[in-house]
């Protein structure tokens, strides 16, 4: 019981931690979704040298553990004259990492859009911008929602590693409270419950897209 009391009394710490996790993940998605789409367009449409270069970078990034990327960016940015506080360094690494995965997800999703669909768009005079905005991306949003949802949950999970570079996110908060009050169970259980809540929210979003999909695609 004392554990729950500790959590309740430290609720500000938890809320601050959860708010940091959410703001990191949301800012990351706001940046990495457009960047991922753009990269996927380059991966499908650009001429060979640029396309190959980007494909190599994306493949390489997907081989790096996130914590190491975060360390390299956190300690590397000052070397090139950029002093960022941990939150911003964390956002940069989370965005770079998530973009690499999303680029691959979007690339695969673009390929899954029926060819004749795209050909019809050309025949009716849709420009490339319209083709992506009106024909390809809406279909990708509907069809690839489950994979994108999985990636969002992965990004939430990755964001916890930023505690190691002292970003005060949710796991940092749980660790802090547990260390200060010598009651490990309740603080971590509270943090895990909050993570579970976030993942439920993502899954609900995916379910809504799937309902749209059933209506439109049968």
């Amino acid at each position: 019981m004392s554990g729950l009391l500790v959590v309740w009394e430290s609720r500000d710490v938890f809320l601050w931690g959860a708010a940091n996790t959410l703001s990191l993940v949301l800012s990351c998605l706001l940046l990495s979704i457009p960047l991922g789409i753009l990269s996927a367009i380059v991966l499908t449409e650009a001429t060979a040298p640029l396309r190959r270069l980007l494909a190599e970078v994306v493949d390489l990034l997907r081989c790096v553990p996130f914590l190491l990327l975060a360390y390299v960016i956190y300690y590397g940015l000052p070397e090139i004259g950029l002093r960022l506080d941990p939150w911003w360094a964390g956002l940069v690494s989370l965005t770079v990492y998530t973009t690499a995965y999303l680029a691959e997800i979007f690339r695969a999703a673009f390929l899954a859009v029926a060819r004749d669909n795209i050909e019809a768009a050309h025949a009716f005079g849709l420009s490339r911008l319209l083709l992506y905005r009106r024909i390809i991306l809406p279909q990708v949003a509907i069809m690839a929602a489950p994979v994108i949802g999985n990636q969002v949950i992965t990004t939430i999970r990755d964001s916890a590693l930023l505690m190691i570079i002292t970003v005060q996110e949710l796991t940092f908060a749980a660790n802090f409270v547990s260390a200060n009050h010598f009651t490990p169970f309740a603080p971590f259980a509270a943090a895990i419950s909050l993570y579970l809540l976030m993942s439920f929210a993502v899954e609900e979003g995916v379910r809504r897209m799937e309902r749209i999909r059933t209506v439109r695609y049968g």
Binding site: A114, D116, N117, E119, A120, A121, H122, A123, F124, G125, L126, S127, I135, P138, Q139, I142, R216, Y217
Partner: peptide, 20 residues
């Protein structure tokens, strides 16, 4: 080319309707 194509419409063998 896109502008020119607006005066030539096409009907495809497999319909090619936009499913969304």
């Amino acid at each position: 080319l896109a502008r020119a194509r607006t005066s030539i419409a096409m009907v495809f063998q497999h319909f090619a309707l936009w499913p969304h």
